[in-house]
Design a binder for these strands. Structure first.
Length: 570
RNA sequence: GGGCCCGUGGCUUAGCCAGGAUAUAGCACCGGGCUUCUAACCCGGGGGUCGUGGGUUCAACUCCCACCGGGUCCGCCA
């Protein structure tokens, strides 16, 4: 591992601080930022200028006059443009990047961090299928887990299964009153009876007592009721798991809420909270005072009938997570903002490490917010089906000569990719409105654009191989790559580490999505301007083929980190 | 009523936390490019008071305050 970009940054810092010292200024904290004008840029002349009441432009000139670059440096040129000091990478940086990609291959990018992370995402209630709101959670969480893994963390991904909440009690009750359609996918069949049950309960509120009874029974450990709940949960969960698998979303384990009741962890956590002296009884319910954390209203952790709440079980779960990882990360929808704040405060009050919470805003329908209970939602299955059908039309138009299994496979990769990319590309704090027209329109620069670049790179190498022009072991000389588009593309590939680091530290995967598009863009520039198979001579062709090999590797790595398949041909 | 999030060309969106060089990109629109490594591509063009009003600063899309618009949450649901 070379971590070229990080080394480059360090070298720039050191060269710059030496020069500042020689120019007899106080360096202080050195800030560097990527810029469209240079590989790295510093605004330090502004700071020194304002501190010493000197013209920043002159300060920059004086500093640059003292710059000396050691031999073999990754830093090439340094110049002052007005008050900015601009650094560009050296030929050595370009060539080392090229070799680093070609030797590290699928390991290129990342591996700079360490530690154990427990990441929880999706955790949708098993009362129906995943809908287009849930999958923002899944895709955000899964992409983040891939980013953190590539960054070098040991990541365990969990789905927290609500197997004993009120919703599940309602589903369980619904089994006795409505017909369960076994021919349907389990999660969809569960939603059907769940919706009917909710309607029935609204019409006859006296039935609610039967739900409460179920909840008391399950919490007290009644075998029959537990079995009923498990059965309902499993129908839904099997369907949910299938959908997740189809979207390339992976969980390492499914942890049930009930396990924290059975282990006694919930009772323990209530006792621990009581011991802080923050609790009081309110109409028989136990509430926690969190006013010193800025929460006006107290938090209920036990119902007046003695049963626990989602929050209580979640506290026990988080206490467990805190003991089993260095970092705990949760992906929650915006509706969980308050409750997750209260959860963090409560954990803090009992001295338990708090989770880092990633909040994403809602996906709604044009007619309003989604609701499983009211049957107002678009399921992920339906979305995937429509998108793949649309992708199949497209591939059929573009590659009519290929056989059906090729078309279907490409359609699948492109469809899922398009969905994942569309969701992950936007910053999580933006709320969005689901729109069929937009969801099915992937003509824009999205996943298919990046996948297509990968397929192009593969296609060139395949053709080169067929013509006996491509030998992966052959000596290639990256010094022959001198065109602007070639240099720019190599520099773009070298930024992969920096982008991963940014995504991992901010817990924001959308930067990677944007980087993927820029990377494909840079490859397309190279493709447009530098003929590979028809290069001027054998040495240039060998160097360019090596660069195409780099393209294939880095684009595939980026796509893999985004959870999007990289087709060899499309 | 209070808390939090969002408000950037017709639409979608990056940049904002760590203030500075002509505000990012896509869609749509106008024009050009397939006898040349896959045109799911490339090149060029028009289009923006960065919600509004103040403030801080040499410098504000970025920081502070107020307001407007949208979303969301506000104890025994999850």
């Amino acid at each position: 591992m070379f971590f070229l970009y990080f080394t480059f940054t360090e070298q720039v810092k050191s060269i710059l601080s030496d020069a500042i010292e020689k120019a007899e200024f106080e360096a202080g904290e050195i800030s560097l930022e990527p810029s469209q004008h240079a590989d790295l840029s510093s605004r330090i002349a502004f700071l020194i200028g304002s501190r010493t009441k000197q013209n920043p432009k002159e300060v920059a000139d004086r500093i640059v006059a003292e710059i000396s670059i050691p031999a073999d440096s990754l830093v090439g040129k340094v110049e002052a443009t007005g008050p900015y000091i601009n650094f560009s990478a050296s030929d050595a940086y370009i060539q080392k990047t090229y070799w680093s990609i070609r030797t590290e291959r699928e390991n290129f990018g990342g591996n700079f961090a360490s530690g154990k992370i427990l990441l929880e995402h999706t955790s949708a209630n098993p009362n129906g299928p995943l809908h287009v709101g849930h999958i923002r959670n899944s895709i955000l969480g899964d992409t983040l887990s891939r980013i953190l893994k590539r960054a070098g963390y040991d990541v365990e991904v969990q789905y927290y299964v609500n197997d004993m909440g009120r919703q599940i009690a309602i589903v369980s009750w619904a089994f006795d009153h409505f017909e369960f359609d076994k021919t349907k996918k389990g999660d969809h069949a569960i939603a059907e009876i769940y919706i009917k049950a909710n309607r029935a309960l609204e019409e006859d509120p006296s039935k609610v007592a039967e739900i409460d009874r179920f909840m008391q029974l399950v919490e007290s450990g009644d075998e029959d009721t537990i079995k009923r709940f498990d059965e309902a949960v499993n129908y839904a969960l099997e369907g949910i798991k299938k959908t997740l698998l189809e979207m390339n979303v992976h969980h390492d384990s499914f942890v049930t809420e009930s396990s924290f009741i059975r282990s006694g962890a919930v009772k323990d956590i209530v006792e621990r909270i009581k011991a802080t002296g923050r609790t009081e009884l309110d109409d028989g319910a136990i509430v926690v005072d969190l006013s010193d954390y800025g929460f006006e209203k107290s938090l209920v952790i036990q119902r007046s009938d003695g049963t626990s709440l989602y929050t209580t079980r979640d506290l026990a779960y988080h206490e467990w997570k805190a003991r089993h990882a260095d970092r705990v990360i949760d992906i929650f929808g915006a509706d969980h903002k308050l409750i997750s704040g209260q959860l963090r405060a409560t954990l803090n009050a009992i001295g338990v490490k708090e989770p880092e919470v990633v909040i994403f805003e809602f996906v709604s329908l044009p007619e309003g917010s989604m609701s499983t209970r009211q049957g107002k939602f678009i399921s992920a299955d339906e979305l995937l089906e429509q998108v793949e059908a649309r992708a199949l039309e497209e591939v059929t138009i573009r590659r009519p000569e290929m056989d059906d299994s090729f078309k279907k496979e490409v359609a699948r990769m492109v469809g899922i990719g398009a969905v994942r990319y569309d969701i992950v590309k936007v910053s999580p704090e933006k709320s969005t409105v689901f729109d069929w027209k937009e969801a099915l329109d992937f003509e824009k620069q999205g996943a298919p654009f990046i996948q297509y670049s990968h397929a192009r790179a593969c296609s060139i190498l395949k053709k080169a191989e067929e013509e006996g022009l491509w030998d992966p072991e052959a000596q290639a000389n990256p010094a022959l790559l001198v065109d602007d588009s070639e240099i720019a593309f190599i520099k773009k590939m070298a930024l992969f580490d920096q982008v991963l680091e940014k995504c991992a530290s901010e817990l924001k995967p959308h930067h990677l999505a944007i980087y993927g598009r820029e990377l494909a863009d840079a490859f397309n520039q190279f493709y447009r301007f530098s003929p590979v198979l028809a290069a001027e001579d054998d040495n240039i062709r060998a160097a360019r083929l090596g660069l195409v090999d780099c393209a294939r590797v880095v684009i595939a790595n980026v796509l893999d980190t985004l959870g999007i398949d990289a087709p060899q041909s499309m």
